[in-house]
Design a protein around this nucleic acid. Sequence first.
RNA 1: CGGGGUAUAGCGUAGUCCGGUUAGCGCGCCUGCUUUGGGAGCAGGAGGUCGUAAGUUCGAAUCUUACUACCCCGACCA
Length: 491
Amino acid sequence: MAKNFSSREEDYSKWYNDLVIKAGLAENSAVRGCMVIKPYGYAIWEKMQRALDDMFKATGHQNAYFPLFIPKSFFSKEAAHVEGFAKECAVVTHYRLKNSPDGKGVVVDEEARLEEELIIRPTSETIIWDTYRNWIQSYRDLPLLVNQWANVVRWEMRTRLFLRTAEFLWQEGHTAHATRDEAIAETEQMLRVYATFAEQWMALPVLQGIKSPNERFAGAVETYCIEALMQDGKALQAGTSHFLGQNFARAFDVKFLNKSNELEHVWATSWGVSTRLMGALVMAHSDDNGLVLPPKLAPLQVVIVPIYKKVEQLDEIAVVARSIMDDLRARGISVKFDDDDSQKPGWKFNEYEFKGVPVRLAIGPRDIENGTVEVARRDTLEKEVLQLTDIGHKIQHLLENIQDNLYQKALTFRDASTHKADSWQEFNDILDQRGGFVLAHWDGSPETEQLIKEETKATIRLIPLNAREEKGVCIRTGKPSERRVVFARAY
RNA sequence: CGGGGUAUAGCGUAGUCCGGUUAGCGCGCCUGCUUUGGGAGCAGGAGGUCGUAAGUUCGAAUCUUACUACCCCGACCA
């Protein structure tokens, strides 16, 4: 399965594509730009969902579900919003098919044209705010803290599995608040939730900050984001949290009576992460031997491979394996005993390695004799022989160790790939030779950002939260600047 | 959406330029025996309307046209 697998060095983007397909995470479908997420990939997504959903609930949010279709007229109510999404909307115009006159297949029934065309949601702000108008009358109805897990469609020109697909899965939180400060606090809180999830579950260090006006969400007052660095030195936006001000409340006429009996527009936020995180996970940790998954998100955390010649030996091994499995499962660790006789151990070693299973145990006749087990860890590919005594505890500890190691490794890589640039020459050299994050001064104008993007393909990934004041001059124009911002070439 | 490329068995491919036996090979799959501490060996076997649709021709995987999908490079974007 892993034969003919490209290395990162040879062709990073082919490596990524091969890995996603050959490890059974996803594949392209019969529909252009849309992927099929396969069971192994979906199992990882389910673990992500579970962890995030628990964090949303713990911060007081509830799940709900809004329609896939949005009346076209809703879209035009918020000017910046329609401007941002109009070019990539799928539109439903008819509701019926009929047999083709020539008898071959079916055609759209032109008589069944919709009176008002429907947009397939690229995001749900409009339908949600149209709904919230009826839910909110008083300050007592606030805050309104709702999340939905859904699919959305953005008609992308060029797609890549998980990183950019026409249809993708995500969650979108939509909250309403009585005050500006409370809405901003919510926006920042959810950004921290995302950062915590990325770091503690995905073992992925992220920068936190706000987007420049050019990169801001269509309809937002401020867009906060977490940004991660991939192994090829390109940045990837891993999550966004938007302070929407009163833009959507005004567009959809959502008002509430405050304690002084005055009518006010509510303050809004929205925030989301998508199946794009799957792409980030793959690109952050995996190597030329295949996937490397952090234990907390691995569908299977431990696999036990028996090594035997005779059936009687397998029986002996199975007894030991079952006792290890009981121990691990009692600790909440997922484990599989692969006693499939149709594949040899060597084949299984490679297979589980390719699929990124964090820990592999091998038990053979020698181990039975000595009361030992061979333990192999996926992140470093190291093997050691351990006594069976207290094995559950040792493996639990090892899994925690792997989780930490992956994070540290990614953090070390990011730190080594982050550079300051103080001249235009230096800026270009870093981008061309090393990639990574470049900390540089910018004069704050959208025009300069656009110019830099056109000349270098690098964009401002974020302006760090609580950025240290540091006087300097813009890397491109030489105009004065108050602080450094983070540039990178990005996915 | 513009430029370039690709499409032959589950996967990878030969054959296409220059039309002509039964479309070949490797991996995988099925059966049997031997094997099993890093992708096993031998023997036998199954599996193809050559991406789709038209056209040219006595004859099309091969030539022509259109369409579809995927890959690379741009523009756009989570």
